[in-house]
Computed example of a mutant assay.
Amino acid sequence: MARSKRSVDWGFPRWRGYGSERDAVKVRICDRAGCDEPGDRPAPKSPNSSERWYFCETHAAEYNRNWNYFEGLSDEEAKRRAAEEMRDASGYAQSSHHGWAGPGDGSRSRDEMHALEILELEADADFSAVRVAWRKLAKENHPDVKPGDEEAAKRFHAIQAAFDVLKSAEERRQWRPEE
């Protein structure tokens, strides 16, 4: 009776490490002439093309350093394409740090950013600046100061709501344990 071969991936304890199969692994070599390193970093052969070069890390960095995205476009077309990319999520140059885009460092919620906008403050304003702006705008738009002015009353309520949002966010930050 012939003895059947067992798979190497069965049983406990494993006598060999994971991924130590004996089959040959296919490695793509860097497309740069004369380079023997693995080519594991794809790069486009031309703009709007699905064809790719595969470079090692060193040659990919060299390729990217010399890449001109707007090559072959007129000045007008290049400006139009840059404006299109800045309009949607692909214009990452405006994002600060690696947050989810938009102003600020990613530590404030959308509601907090809207509240700062209502109080006419920058995205990185601290809570003392929030308090000063809230007092100034509340005094200007208070219904007792401007009786009968519906717009001032609406602005006053929006200013109060914005301050409440920022105050509760500041209290949450103070009580959050240090990471």
Rank of each mutant, 00 (worst) to 15 (best):
A2E: 14
A2M: 10
S4R: 14
K5M: 04
R6D: 14
S7T: 09
S7V: 02
V8Y: 10
V8S: 13
D9C: 03
W10D: 15
G11L: 08
F12R: 15
P13C: 04
P13H: 05
P13E: 12
R14N: 15
R16Q: 14
Y18L: 06
G19T: 02
S20A: 11
E21I: 02
D23G: 11
A24N: 10
A24D: 10
V25L: 11
K26S: 09
K26W: 09
R28H: 10
I29V: 10
C30D: 07
C30P: 04
C30S: 09
A33P: 11
A33L: 10
G34A: 07
E37C: 02
P38C: 03
P42Q: 07
P42M: 01
K45A: 04
K45S: 03
K45N: 01
S46L: 08
S49A: 13
S50L: 08
Y54F: 15
C56P: 00
C56D: 01
E57Q: 08
E57L: 00
T58P: 04
T58F: 06
H59F: 00
H59D: 11
H59R: 07
A60M: 04
A60Y: 13
Y63V: 13
N66I: 01
N66L: 11
N66C: 07
W67T: 12
N68R: 14
L73Y: 08
A78L: 08
A82L: 11
R87I: 01
A89W: 10
G91C: 09
Y92D: 11
S95M: 07
H97E: 14
H98I: 05
W100V: 04
A101S: 12
P103W: 00
P103I: 03
G104Q: 04
G104W: 01
D105R: 13
G106I: 04
S109P: 12
S109H: 08
R110I: 13
R110D: 15
E112Q: 15
M113N: 08
M113V: 03
M113L: 15
H114N: 15
E117D: 15
E117R: 06
D126I: 01
W134A: 04
W134S: 02
R135N: 05
A138R: 02
E140N: 00
H142W: 00
P143M: 05
P147N: 03
P147T: 02
D149S: 03
D149A: 05
E151M: 06
E151R: 12
A152Q: 08
A152S: 14
A153P: 06
A153W: 07
A153F: 04
A153R: 14
K154C: 01
R155F: 01
R155G: 00
F156S: 07
Q160F: 05
A161P: 03
A162K: 05
D164Q: 08
V165C: 15
A169Q: 11
E170G: 00
R173Q: 15
Q174D: 12
Q174N: 12
W175V: 05
R176A: 12
E178H: 07
E178G: 07
